[in-house]
Write a protein that binds this DNA or RNA. Structure first.
Lengths: 228, 228
DNA sequence: ATCTGCCAACCTGTATGCAGCTATAGTGTG
DNA sequence: CACACTATAGCTGCATACAGGTTGGCAGAT
């Protein structure tokens, strides 16, 4: 599974080309914690890896900074931002509200596509049990996000939903190792519930299901932090 | 009043330097419709105006594109995006929800500052009556936005609130000329109501007031479009 | 006269050189 | 031995040269 094979975003205005590929690759690495917070990235180094000059790499890094995932300092480098507990709390609280809002802008025509995606994800999740493959698990979550994201008929909400999904996922993955089995079961449950909601054509329910599972994840993360 | 004198944004991570200045200047011009939709911008031309090379200009333009305000095509140029009626409807609907959400994350400590800002704005608005000065009016709205934005304690919501304010303002200004007196009176009313809410320390009320006035504006724009 | 195909001017995308900034290791001094 | 200072390597920010793409106009054939 190559980096650039990440499924196409559902945004209306599709970004083009090379820079976006690099952007997505780096974003994914950050969210996967392969680039942990505090890690220093060099433009030259990345340029070599992607076999381009510094220019496109810089563009990608600027977008990441605009997303709040990195911070570039003159004379030093670009470093992955840390997970500020306050920002973390804000993002999660906001995401809860966004999910609740989802049902107000239902894209009915996307239901069949979403349902078939969910069913496929269920099969793949089943195959994953007992493997403890973090990246595959992440990929599943990623695709679930895309599928549900497409159920939102409002472009502005959809963009925002996506934006904060990536900010949140990064934080979330920092504790997933401790809860892997739990999260696996949770995801299975979420897929089941969403499948049921989609069969009933109830997109609002999908939003609420998602909201609840975000809250569950939040609770786990919070208890892990207090435990430490 | 110089272009770069635009009041500081309330974002936590403050962007630095030259690029941000250019970005803000261009963003303001687009939102003011001094750069109308469809207008073609040349990097070289802008570089000359700001007395820099194409590089920082390009960075600013990329951020604008990421915001959805412009669209860059290879070999052609960067053009200001049109106001798609669908996107327009989406943004407004979303902003209504965001305003309603504001009261859930109140930044109590900002109330005094917001109140004094509002009072100052009332004076300036009074001085504006009968002048039909679009830009001054816009500047007032802009500052009102910043003041209320700071009342939001949730960073994610604050960022989103700001993001879509700019997207919406542009559309809104395309019809303001037809309703200038009405909007002036409306803004005066809004300032009054917000001042009252702030004196009561009721930030939730501020959100609802804002929501209602957004809806009023929306109604005017919608009726203008159907009239045409 | 009209249509087709080509060419040239212009624009963005990319690569690269240079200037300014930062952090660190090393050196000299108390 | 501790500490302040300096030199230097390496990084980003900016400018600029070049490559690739697009458009509009002009010339020639039908």
């Amino acid at each position: 599974m190559s980096e650039s094979a990440t499924s196409e975003t559902s945004r209306t205005r599709a970004p083009r080309g090379q820079v976006t590929d690099i952007y997505r690759a780096l974003r994914d690495r950050i969210c996967l914690l392969r680039y942990p917070p505090g890690m220093l990235l060099g433009e030259h180094e990345l340029a070599e890896e992607f076999t381009v000059s510094r220019t496109p790499v810089r563009q990608a890094l600027q977008r990441l900074e605009y997303d709040g995932l990195t911070e570039t300092r003159n004379g030093v480098g670009t470093m992955v931002t840390g997970v500020d507990p306050n920002a973390f709390r804000d993002i999660y609280a906001f995401r809860l509200r966004l999910s609740e809002m989802m049902g107000e802008f239902p894209a009915e025509e996307e239901v069949p596509h979403a349902l078939s995606t969910i069913l496929a994800l269920q099969v793949r999740l089943e195959a994953l049990k007992g493997q403890r493959d973090m990246e595959a698990f992440w990929q599943l979550n990623h695709e679930l996000h895309h599928a549900t994201n497409r159920l939102i008929a409002n472009l502005a909400l959809r963009e925002t939903h996506e934006r904060y999904y990536f900010q949140a996922s990064r934080i979330w993955y920092s504790v997933i190792e401790a809860f892997f089995e739990e999260q696996l079961a949770d995801l299975a449950g979420e897929l089941n519930e969403i499948a049921g909601a989609l069969r009933a054509g109830d997109i609002r329910a999908v939003g609420y299901i998602q909201r609840n599972h975000i809250a569950f994840g939040l609770h786990r993360v919070a208890s892990a932090h207090t435990a430490v």
